[in-house]
Amino acid sequence: MPLESEDIKKIIPQRVPFLMIDRVIEASPEKVVAIKNVSTNEPFFKGHFPDEPIMPGALMIEAMAQAGLVLYRQKFPNDKLLFLVSVKARFFEPVIPGDQLRIEAAPIKLLSKMGLVRTEILVSGKKVAEAEIAVASRDAKA
């Protein structure tokens, strides 16, 4: 089931300029595929870097985390706000204006109030980043 920008806003709380996914082309509890078109107009390119625009790795993590959140919401639509707990990430290629990010997220384990997801970003079929991301709600305690 594809989700457009307005549908995405219903399931995750991030907003422009911090909404890092434009569209979700596949969404199930087993897999989410999201698209982010990186334009020259992105506010972060102004400073990162003035003469050589490169998307900050931290924001690529944000994009992967947001795709992970969409995935989590497929299984637990009503859980409270989730916080980032841990990130293990690797970056392979820089992302520059004009790139279209294909952000894929799959569950490692999703529990109520916390989840562990595996995510990656592809540009033209080539993997540019990957991350294992853990999220939890503030009241998650074992």
Partner: peptide, 16 residues
């Protein structure tokens, strides 16, 4: 000193 997130990581590692 384990946390609930570590418990989740342990669980995921065992399942795999």
């Amino acid at each position: 000193g384990a946390s609930s997130m570590m418990a989740l990581e342990i669980l995921a590692a065992l399942e795999k």
